[in-house]
Design a protein around this nucleic acid. Structure first.
Length: 616
RNA sequence: GGGGGCGUAGCUCAGUUGGUCAGAGCGCCGGCCUGUCACGUCGGAGGUCGCGGGUUCGAGUCCCGUCGCUCCCGCCA
């Protein structure tokens, strides 16, 4: 053992170590120089301990210590001693003791100044994220980041332990695979041996896991990296991690029950948060849209949507009547206590509704000095409603005096979507969602296909291998829109955490679905021939699910930014400011791959702006 | 592809109608300080106001363009 090597970790020292001759290694968090007395806080991943030197008892060492720079790496030898009475620091685990230094080894002096003050959490929460990611190795020294990485590791460990107990095999699948034009844009990898051919990075291991089922594995899982070249959001990254799992000889309920048991174990083990419901609430897709206006409802609060068509069939208010006559819907939502909202607040809500696609937003404030027998409603639409209509409206909505009733008249889809978004907005304004509750629910029975206006064809709402409900099979050709899929999402607090389905394991059904999706025999064979062929050799009934690991850690740590729960995330355009990726490659590499770069018409390939953001 | 926000010292920010507006806090450098833990205190250095162009006697400020980050819509089977 080298004499600089530690005998204890910084965070481990306690009163019981008083008198011990110890060596600790770590990073300097701060230096407090009092002239003839100097304190250094030394930090490793286990915690922090105070080092103390004074001029009389340790003169050369005192000078060394006083000159050391924050974030330098030191080895400190010394005697653990009790702090003087009144000088204990209750905010430190090691706060009852300190180390009286007898030797200082500077293992690595830190260059100054630092790009940001990583010992100041208040400031770090404001520091430009690109800068933090460019110096991610410094950012990661913050205890908060270490705790996140540790939690992520422990959650994944629990997942493995649970699924191993349940008889699953963890199996790796290839990262170099073939492009499938469905779904998101692929990341492509050129094939050197035959220019013009490309691998694609998998958007998910979907096809491989199904082939594992055909291969008789029966229970598979993987902590799988997935790649999608799509626009980013606060909760999306070009590469992200899913718990991918698949099971054979199971029904939808088997998968839901297993996933639910796993989820409950993860939450109760790794969080102090309360589960919103046990067993998890189950909603069909139709119910979710009808009650919450979205297929990923936040169930931590009520505020359900209501249908109002039956009240306004013959109303004199033409906006409502015309919508209903032309097959549309009038739907409503309550803003509790919202009658007192200012004109500006109401304008903001209306603008918000328009932004999402509503033609307008009807708002009716119930004056507090009127009762439910003769409710006085105020708002631009109020004069169009009869007293009877006002009375039945407040009853149907379950409103109270002082509430604001919001209504949208449009197609069922648009009215629901707009009010669903307004529902979240209202809950945010009123802080209705408790931070310490995780309300998981299942949303089931999604439509198998959705009509795409853009492409004028039916589109798979999950993916083309999703099994229809057997009792709906007869409508597959005659009325595709009413066919429900054996498909499910697990949703938590308004966030889609994972989705899955029972897969089609019969070639005849698969062909009918492909036909519905407008995928010709030729295309079927070209793109999915390997799958169809596999299914013709004895495929077991199977299905699975893929919950997002990153999103789970976000939920557990109250982060709304996915970059905060990954060690080395990418910034907006998919760039990595630390590695400098993506980057140009040598002409010889391109030549070997048979690739030629065609500059964009607008600018040169690397015609960036030299004044900003260039790396040292 | 579209919309909003941001870009001034190492970091976080202020800078009004264009005219001592190149500023603050923290950090950094130097001095002093024996009980601090957001140490204190005295002094100092540090700026192509993202970049380019325009208007003007004069631009951090106004206009045009551009680059970057960020949030949202589209997109993400």
């Amino acid at each position: 053992m080298q004499d600089w090597q530690r005998t204890h970790t910084c965070g481990a020292l306690r009163a019981e170590h008083i008198g011990n001759d110890v060596v600790v290694n770590g990073w300097v968090r701060s230096v407090r120089d009092h002239g003839d007395l100097v304190f250094v806080d030394l930090r490793d991943r286990t915690g922090m301990v105070q080092i103390c030197a004074d001029a009389s008892s340790a003169s050369g060492l005192h000078d060394t210590l006083a000159g050391v720079k924050p974030e330098s790496v030191l080895s400190i030898r010394g005697i653990v001693r009790r702090r003087r009475p009144g000088m204990e620091n209750p905010r430190l685990e090691t706060g009852s003791v300190e180390i009286a230094v007898t030797r200082v080894d500077t293992l690595n002096q830190c260059r100054q100044p630092l790009p940001f003050q990583l010992n100041d959490e208040a400031q770090m929460s404001l520091v430009n994220e690109e800068l933090r990611l460019r110096y991610r190795y410094l950012d990661l020294r913050r205890p908060r980041l270490y705790e996140m990485l540790k939690l992520r590791h422990e959650v994944i460990t629990s997942i493995r332990s649970f699924l191993n107990r349940e008889g699953f095999l963890e199996i790796e699948t290839p990262l170099f695979t073939r492009s499938t034009p469905e779904g998101a844009r692929d990341y492509l990898v050129p094939y050197r041996l035959e220019p013009g051919l490309f691998y694609a990075l998998p958007q998910s291991p979907q096809q491989y896991k199904q082939l594992l089922m055909v291969g008789g594995v029966e229970r598979y899982y993987q902590i799988a990296r997935c790649f999608r070249d799509e626009a980013q959001r606060a909760d999306r990254q070009p590469e992200f991690t899913q718990l991918d799992l698949e099971m054979s000889f199971v029904t939808q309920d088997d998968i839901l029950n297993l996933t639910e048991a796993l989820t409950i174990e993860l939450i109760t083990t790794h969080s102090t948060k309360t589960l919103g419901s046990r067993p998890f609430t189950r909603l069909t897709y139709d119910e979710a849209i009808a009650r919450y206006g979205t297929d990923k409802p936040d169930l931590r609060y009520g505020l359900e949507l209501r249908d109002l068509n039956h009240l306004f069939q013959d109303t004199g208010f033409s906006v409502f009547r015309d919508t209903i006559e032309s097959g549309g819907f009038v739907r409503g939502l309550i803003y509790p206590g919202g009658a007192g909202l200012s004109r500006k607040n109401l304008d903001d809500l209306t603008r918000f509704a328009r932004q999402i696609g509503a033609k307008g937003l009807v708002h009716l404030a119930w004056a507090t000095d009127s009762d439910s027998e003769a409710p006085v409603l105020q708002g631009p639409a109020a004069r169009h409603l009869t007293a009877d209509e006002a009375r039945s409206l407040v009853r149907a909505m379950g409103a109270k005096p002082g509430d604001l009733i919001l209504a949208v008249a449009d197609s069922f889809r648009v009215a629901s979507a707009v009010l669903g978004r307004l529902r979240c907005e209202i809950a945010r304004h009123l802080s209705l969602a408790p931070r310490d509750v995780l309300h998981f629910c299942w949303v089931t029975d999604f439509p198998l296909v959705e009509w795409s206006e853009d492409e004028q064809r039916w589109d798979a709402s999950h993916h083309p291998f999703t099994m229809p409900h057997l009792e709906d099979l007869e409508y597959l050709e005659s009325d595709p829109g009413r066919v429900r899929a054996q498909c499910y999402d697990i949703v938590c607090n308004g966030i889609e955490w994972g989705s899955g389905s029972i897969r089609i394991a019969r070639a005849d059904i698969q062909s009918r679905v492909f036909a519905l999706l407008g995928i010709s025999q030729e295309i079927q064979q070209e793109r999915f021939g390997h799958m169809l062929e596999a299914f013709a050799y004895g495929a077991p009934p199977h299905g699975g699910i893929a919950p997002g690991i990153d999103r789970l850690i976000m939920l557990l740590t109250d982060n709304d930014n996915i970059r905060e729960v990954m060690a080395f995330p990418k910034i907006g355009g998919g760039g990595d400011p630390l590695m400098g990726a993506p980057a140009p490659v040598d002409a010889s590499q391109l030549a070997e791959l048979g690739l030629q770069i065609v500059p964009r018409a607008r600018d040169s390939v690397h015609g960036g702006d030299p004044g900003s953001n260039d790396r040292a």
